[in-house]
Simulated assay, not measured.
Amino acid sequence: MRKRNYIIIGVLSLIAILVIGGLIVLDGLSSMGNPNGSRAPDYPYFITTVPVTVKNIGVPKGTKLTYEEHFFKEGRQEKIMNEKKLTGIELPKGKTIDWGGVPVYMITKFSNPEMKGFTVNADFGQLSEYKKTKFSEMWQSCSGELGVLVNDADDWTFNPKNIADISDCSVAYQRFFKEDAEQQRFLDKLVSEIKKKDQNQMK
């Protein structure tokens, strides 16, 4: 009887070790790619069920709205959350909105709290040849996203009066490299093209 009890205890202990080991492995896998080794937060998000306006931008049904990390909320939410906490707008696949004459599919708030602005991702494949402008051509030449610094963080539209500066055009041109005259001239020209659009609208 005692021998059988030892066997049962041994089997149960082995099962417990395997379960715990499996959980550790899974936790390790979920942490892969994260520099500090911890699990990436499951940011709360909402998928719009009807067209809505956020950050002064009208977005279609099926748009993913992502929010800041929340202590009590994770993953998909049943209701739209506070716009003040919004960190990202991602349109449904194949859908774009007009942003300064350029079709864009995603806008993401800067993660650096010291920078007031957002990153805009364009789909130049949907830009008609006859709609191209100097601004769109310069942006497309960077082959990437556009970093936009604004005065009012609650307005993510293409509003020349609100756009304070362009922080970067992909990795090719960045304000950070002040000593690089070519990069600074390119970004200055981009800002100039944005201001021209504002002047054209006033005519």
Rank of each mutant, 00 (worst) to 15 (best):
R2L: 12
R2V: 11
Y6R: 14
I8W: 00
I8T: 09
I9W: 09
I9M: 09
I9V: 11
G10L: 10
G10N: 02
G10S: 13
L14H: 08
L14M: 13
L14Q: 05
I15Y: 06
I15W: 01
I17E: 04
I20S: 05
I20F: 08
L23Y: 12
L23F: 07
L23N: 09
V25D: 01
L29R: 10
L29S: 09
N34P: 02
P35A: 08
S38H: 10
R39V: 15
A40V: 11
Y43D: 05
Y43K: 09
Y45P: 00
Y45T: 06
F46W: 06
T48M: 03
T49L: 11
P51T: 10
T53Y: 06
P60I: 06
P60Q: 10
K61R: 13
T63R: 11
T63H: 07
K64M: 15
L65S: 06
T66Y: 00
E68S: 13
E69M: 11
H70Y: 08
F72E: 12
F72R: 05
K73R: 11
K73T: 05
E74T: 13
G75V: 02
Q77T: 07
E78V: 09
E78R: 04
M81P: 00
E83A: 06
G88P: 04
I89W: 09
L91Y: 00
P92G: 08
P92E: 09
D98Y: 05
G101E: 05
P103L: 03
P103K: 10
Y105M: 08
M106Q: 15
I107L: 13
I107H: 04
T108N: 10
T108D: 10
T108I: 11
F110V: 01
S111A: 12
P113V: 01
P113N: 04
P113G: 07
E114V: 12
M115G: 02
M115Y: 11
G117Y: 04
G117L: 05
G117I: 10
F118E: 00
V120Y: 00
V120R: 02
D123I: 09
D123Y: 01
G125K: 03
Q126I: 04
E129V: 13
E129W: 09
K132H: 01
K134L: 03
F135A: 05
F135Q: 02
S136K: 03
E137A: 09
M138H: 07
W139E: 01
Q140L: 01
Q140E: 13
G144N: 04
L146N: 00
V150H: 01
N151L: 05
N151T: 07
A153P: 00
N159E: 10
N159W: 02
N159Y: 07
K161N: 11
K161A: 14
K161C: 00
I166F: 15
S167R: 06
D168M: 15
Q174W: 06
Q174L: 13
Q174V: 14
R175N: 04
R175M: 03
F177D: 14
K178F: 10
D180V: 07
A181Q: 14
E182C: 04
E182N: 14
Q183F: 06
F186E: 13
F186H: 01
L187K: 00
D188K: 09
S192G: 07
S192Q: 15
E193S: 08
K195P: 03
K197D: 14
K197V: 15
D198S: 15
D198K: 14
Q199T: 15
N200H: 13
